[in-house]
């Protein structure tokens, strides 16, 4: 299950991040790394971008990026 499979309002825990180094580092600098708790805040109309909260940070990302984050429902 990945971040892209979650619905608005659902929470999950990050299991692994399969992205390439640059993106992985980028995620990590925002606090999105293994073990982090995430919550889906909003999804755009065309299902192309989503807003995710990690700790006190809110992140916007494309579904393509969200697919690289494996999560586990909590």
């Amino acid at each position: 299950m990945t971040l892209a499979d979650l619905n608005t309002g659902q929470s999950a825990k990050v299991v692994t991040i399969n992205a390439q180094d640059a993106l992985k580092k980028r995620f990590s600098s925002f606090g999105l790394r293994k073990g982090a708790l995430v919550n889906i805040q909003a999804v755009s109309m065309t299902k192309s971008t989503m807003e995710v909260s990690v700790g006190a940070t809110k992140l916007a990302m494309r579904f393509e990026e969200a697919k690289e984050v494996a999560v586990q429902m909590v």
Binding site: A19, A22, L23, R26, F27, F30, T49, E51, T57, K58, L59, A60, M61, R62, E64, E65
Partner: peptide
């Protein structure tokens, strides 16, 4: 490859 779109939505 497309560059990723990961961006903070500040308060």
């Amino acid at each position: 490859k497309d560059e990723p779109f990961v961006m903070e939505m500040p308060k």
